[in-house]
Design a protein around this nucleic acid. Structure first.
Lengths: 257, 257
DNA sequence: CGCTTTGTTGACGGGGTTCAACCGCAGTGG
DNA sequence: CCACTGCGGTTGAACCCCGTCAACAAAGCG
């Protein structure tokens, strides 16, 4: 049985001590019942004793920052749930133009796709841990527990809603509005993880944000400074943002006022 | 039992002879087994005798061009399958900026959303007929026939893939590339309906296309003429396009060459 | 230490939006 | 019948925002 391939973003496999745990075998660290993101993940749909079956199939994957979990075009053999860390879902055009189709955070499920091959590459932004299950196992699990499939559908719909929201941002919003919306989204995600407050940690680079919002790094940078000048945010450093005026950010993001 | 509200785009209910059939009751014209889009729709997941249960719950909705099937913000009570015609899924910002989040064609399912309220308005572009089922009935049907839920998940994933493709277009493609991709998409959809060939009928206006591609009408119009000048398409009238050079259009849409 | 990466800021130019005019067509009503 | 109106579509001209190019600072890292 092969394991999900780990590659560096540039295509060379990353050497070194850190390799993927073979997903088909339980690693020492894996134990669904003690999972930190169980309340966030699809597995909530399973009762405690049903979880045993899942546990037997699941394995951990550990990635260090910059490593690639999946490459666009590869055959999809596994689905994943993010346990910790942050990843990006990207696609690159032949001429180098890049899109970040989304960011993946703890609790997020990776595997909603109708295609047999990956439509995007998935790279770790920071060191990350994922729970992996072979697609075949997942299918079997779904057949045995319809509640799981229902939960998956539910989540796919939520993700569809979110993606459609991004369409609006990309099609019709100004850079400032896009950034405001992005920051609020990230804050909302944080809240869902139980980390409230207006402090925000952005693990991704400005380039990631730019490719996510359909802008250039320069425009993103300028938009950050404008939000800062206008008193809506403050930033200790580029990756630590405080939302000083969420109301006004909201108004921006919704194009009111 | 109330029926899906039909409104004109401006908000006034449309008077006149054409009203929605009450979806909870079978209308004379409804009969799943004779459905023209059965092979395209989610109902393929049901066997012939299972279809009887569906038949009892389903009803037809008829819309004339311009009528509204659902309004952004309304409570979602029904899900639909497009039988004939064409519709658009739209959202409008307070200041008038408009987004067309997608076009709905025969066989398409309307109802993938995690939200309890509509996130978009849905308007008929041309006269359309839809098959409607109350959400509660749909849920019950899913519980009784897990195959249906599986099919729904499958389709939600396909739609998610398609929406993510649009993200790339909106974020990083030039107007010409977006239009090329759009035309090919429409052609592919046509093919799925069994209407092959390079002839293309676009029921929507240039404004719809513009708001779908994140451009202005002017830019869309100019892009059409450029494609025409470059010999990639020809147009009898604005709504009837012939794809003269699909290969080159493909290259454009994929940003090759 | 150099070297690379990341982020910010300035100057400039171009592509797409904005503004405007025009055409063809379908209603509409005198 | 025909003027009038509105809408959809196309094209031209001017503007401006954002992308491009460039320089620089700061941090990370061998």
């Amino acid at each position: 049985m092969d394991s999900p391939v780990l590659r560096s973003p540039r295509g060379k496999d990353v050497p070194g001590p850190i390799r993927a745990a073979t997903p088909s075998r339980r690693t020492g660290t894996h134990a669904c019942t003690r999972c930190l993101v169980r309340h966030l993940a699809v597995c909530t749909a399973l009762s405690t004793d049903q979880t045993e079956a899942l546990d037997a199939m699941a394995g951990d994957v550990r990635l260090q920052a910059g490593q690639m979990l999946a490459r666009e075009g590869d055959v999809r053999r596994y689905v994943f749930t993010v346990t910790s860390g942050a990843l990006r879902r990207i696609r690159v055009l032949p001429d180098g133009r890049r899109l970040v189709a989304g960011f993946l955070m703890p609790g997020d499920f990776i595997g909603f796709s109708g295609a047999s091959h990956y439509r995007h590459s998935i790279e770790a932004i920071s060191d990350s841990v994922l729970c992996s299950i072979a697609q075949a196992d997942m299918r079997e699990l779904c057949e045995r527990h319809p509640g799981l499939e229902h939960e998956l559908l539910e989540r796919a719909c939520v993700e569809l809603d979110a993606t459609r929201n991004n369409l609006m941002a990309l099609a019709r919003m100004t850079p400032l509005e896009r950034l405001a919306g992005f920051l609020l989204d990230m804050a909302a995600r944080r809240q869902r993880q139980g980390i409230g407050g207006n402090q925000l940690v952005l693990p991704m680079t400005r380039a990631d944000i730019a490719d996510y919002l359909g802008l250039t790094v320069e425009t993103v940078s300028r938009s950050f400074t404008r939000l800062r000048q206008d008193g809506m945010i403050s930033a200790a450093d580029p990756h630590h943002i405080e939302l000083l005026d969420p109301k006004r950010l909201q108004a921006l993001a919704e194009a009111r006022a």
